[in-house]
Design a protein around this nucleic acid. Structure first.
Length: 424
RNA sequence: GGAGAGAUGGCCGAGCGGCUGAAGGCAACGGUUUGCUAAACCGUCAUACGGUUAUAAAGCCGUAUCGGGGGUUCGAAUCCCCCUCUCUCCGCCA
């Protein structure tokens, strides 16, 4: 949630941010609503003060055995006033809250300005795409099906489209990749591994900004809970409604979980293969920091995610998302795109976002500043470290061999137990 | 699923209709004392929001908050209802 106080004191910035995000400006509407809210609230508080005074008088009058009928009649009229003003105030308050919850974060000045992904800015490229001189590289699903280890027919039968069955060595590859990533992040990068709920309540989804705007993208249970679209939702919310100690920051959490997305808006997009699924595995990184730590933590987190690809010797590039392409809660996002020779292009495999105090404000997560002794909102960051399903795709495509087998990256062999995968 | 008990400030814990934003203790912070440590003593010690000053901060004024929501009452931490969560016992179960 954006800071209404900030909007009030820095007029023009929010609207500019929204226009950069390719959204409609709301500042006039927001400020008018806010002003109306505060005017009515102030009035109501005056009535409540009056009520407290009368109530006080009652106690004293009774103690002295005085007549209270005048107080009673005063109270009666006041009560009607309070009732009326409360009826006026509530809808305004609800509208204001609803509006505030639907406004995305203000992008940082560092983000390239533009309406869509064509304005994303590449900042580095690591690794050379392999040259396939003696055969044309296949796409991952062709490799998987040739190996007889990737099955979209039966997954569609037992579930629906956008699911996959992985058999034998590919199932193991998924497991090995996840294990590998978790070990790196916990042993080398200082993250604490956490086993998290995969279903969360509405409040938590609101906290990270999945709700109220993106309800259609989530799977909802009959009991009103939501399947997590990313472990970010579970990890970030751990400290909701809490005041942390500054010395404990930054907190760094990681989890390997399945992620569930309805992909409501992406009909017809990436329908082949397992690039875009309703369910996929992902190792997630979350950091909770102070205001001062957040920028350097963002760079660090991105490097942690890149480190996985470096160790697996997968070529990738890192881009800064443009204002029009970045997510709702983010103020700056790096996407890491892995090279997929089968598609002859770079595809997103990780997204590392800095959310500032946007989520903290929604979740009510603060820390006590040692110097000022005041409670301040924490800053939250999240990143994929990395998407396991897409990483499996990248390994298949980058390490495919002419005869249809797949080599295992050096760093992964101890996790996988074998040096290559060949057909049954 | 059945039966019961409970939820109060950072923690422990009183309170059972007005004098309670909340006793007392612990912790924390500032100070006095002390050669140092310990102890003792004095003081401070919730949060959010609104108003105010020049909507910087602080201050001051106010409102709200004793798990959450609603009700009774002139007045609720205290009484009633609903919900959530925790604990104990029984049943079921990976």
């Amino acid at each position: 949630m954006i800071d209404i106080n900030f909007v009030r004191n820095h007029q023009g910035i929010l609207d500019k941010a929204l226009i950069n995000r390719n959204k409609d400006p709301v500042e006039n509407k927001l400020l008018a609503l806010d002003e109306k809210y505060r005017a009515i609230l102030t009035k109501k508080q005056e009535f409540l003060k009056e009520r407290n005074t009368i109530t006080d008088g009652f106690g004293k009058a009774k103690a002295q055995g005085l007549d209270t009928s005048e107080l009673s009649s005063k109270m009666e009229t006041l009560k009607t006033k309070i009732e009326k003003i409360t009826a006026d105030l509530n809808p305004v308050k609800e509208n204001l809250e609803r509006l505030l919850h639907s406004i995305p974060n203000i992008p940082s000045d560092e983000c390239p300005v533009g309406p869509d992904e064509t304005y994303n800015l590449e900042i580095r490229r690591v690794g050379q795409p392999r040259v396939f001189s003696d055969f044309n590289p296949l796409e991952h699903y062709e490799i998987g099906e040739k190996l007889c280890m990737m099955d979209f027919e039966n997954s569609a039968k037992i579930a629906s489209s956008r699911f996959v069955l992985l058999y034998s060595k590919l199932a193991k590859l998924e497991r090995a990749l996840a294990q590998f990533m978790l070990d790196i992040h916990t042993k080398e990068n200082g993250y604490t591994e956490i086993y998290v709920p995969l279903l969360l309540n509405k409040q938590s989804m609101l906290g990270v900004g999945q709700l109220p705007k993106f309800e259609d993208d989530l799977f909802k249970t009959t009991t009103g809970m939501y399947l997590i679209p990313t472990a970010e939702a579970s990890l970030t919310n751990i400290h909701s409604d809490y005041v942390l100690e500054e010395e404990k920051l930054p907190l760094r959490y990681t989890a390997y979980t399945p992620c569930f997305r309805s992909e409501a808006g992406s009909a017809g997009k990436d329908t082949k293969g397992m690039l875009r699924q309703h369910q996929f595995g992902k190792v997630e990184l979350v950091s909770i920091t102070t205001h001062e730590q957040s920028i350097s933590e963002h760079e660090r987190m991105t490097e942690c995610a890149e480190g996985i690809l470096k160790k697996l010797e997968l070529p990738f590039r890192t881009v800064v998302l443009s204002t029009g392409d970045m997510g709702f809660s983010s103020e700056k996002t790096y996407d890491i795109e892995v090279w997929l020779p089968g598609q002859n292009t770079y595809r997103e495999i990780s997204s590392c976002s800095r959310c500032g105090s946007f989520q903290a404000r929604r979740m009510n997560t603060k820390f006590k500043n040692i110097q000022t002794k005041r409670n301040e909102y924490v800053h939250t960051l999240n990143g994929s470290g990395v998407a396991v399903g897409r990483c499996l795709i990248a390994v298949l495509e980058n390490y495919q061999q002419k005869e249809g087998s797949v080599e295992i990256p050096e760093a992964l062999i101890s996790y996988f137990g074998e040096k290559n995968i060949s057909a049954f």
